[in-house]
């Protein structure tokens, strides 16, 4: 297993919001997390990148467990897992190009010429070849989200974590962002996707996990989970969300 999560529990200030979550990802696989609001999907991703400390369980990369109490270990994980947030979270005081280049330059200390060329290429790939010098407040939501994707890719992560990256966008901007992700999928990027875009989830994922109240309730290939859910709660959720 490339990334495995075993019996993960976590919470905020004493309130448990994740209870005994387990699943795993193979290299090149795309797994999606779906479930109602507040079910803990974001918290799973935030645990993986060390923004929320796990309270119990084991998270392992390439078979070796990550010690989230060690700064060095967390830094190691952040080298390999990159997250894209719902609200893009771009650095407002930097141009698109600087947003993408800053971590490789300042955190990694990679050579400038190489980093800049790479950042430009990444922006070109996400369709922003003409927006290198634009600041976030000069870009549309969809464009900002694509900058955020480029920024996440700049550190050459092994896994991309996407947290509802289209849900803050106007409908006509969703396609351009999803197309960017389709491109990455076609190139074999390993991804853990939280999304409410069910058609998209169905199209790209090899497996879907349904979460409710902090637990993984049901797991299966998308066709199974969407068309023939085994549990009552998954059935409820799927019928509700597909009705839209």
């Amino acid at each position: 297993m490339f990334l495995s999560i075993d019996g993960l529990s976590a919470g905020y200030g004493g309130t448990r919001v994740l209870e005994d979550v387990s699943f795993s990802l193979e290299r090149g696989e795309i797994v999606s997390l779906i479930g109602p609001s507040g079910s803990g999907k974001s918290t799973v991703l935030r645990c993986l990148v060390g923004l929320v400390p796990p309270e119990a369980g084991r998270i392992a990369l390439d078979g070796s467990a990550v010690d989230y109490t060690s700064r060095a270990a967390v830094r190691g994980v952040r080298d390999r897992l990159a997250i894209v947030f719902q609200q893009y979270n771009l650095f407002q005081n930097m141009t698109a190009l600087d947003n993408v280049a800053i971590a490789p330059l300042k955190v990694k200390g990679w050579p400038k010429a190489e980093v800049m060329a790479d950042a430009k290429r990444l922006l070109d790939t996400v369709g922003l070849g003409d927006k290198h010098g634009a600041y976030p407040d000069q870009l549309s939501g969809g464009q900002q989200q694509r900058v955020a994707i480029a920024r996440a890719l700049a550190l050459k992560p092994d896994v991309l974590l996407l947290d509802e990256i289209t849900s803050a966008l106007d409908p006509e901007l969703v396609t351009e962002v999803l197309d960017t992700i389709r491109g990455l999928a076609a190139n074999g990027m390993t991804m853990l996707v939280v999304s409410h875009e069910m058609a998209f989830v169905r199209e790209v994922s090899s497996r879907v996990l349904f979460m409710d109240r902090g637990r993984v309730i049901e797991t299966g290939p998308p066709a199974e989970l969407f068309d023939a859910p085994r549990t009552e709660r998954a059935r409820d959720f799927v019928t509700k969300i597909l009705r839209h």
Partner: peptide, 11 residues
């Protein structure tokens, strides 16, 4: 949110 992004990028 910007601090979260910075943290996950390894700042």
């Amino acid at each position: 949110t910007e601090l979260d992004a910075a943290a996950t990028l390894g700042f």
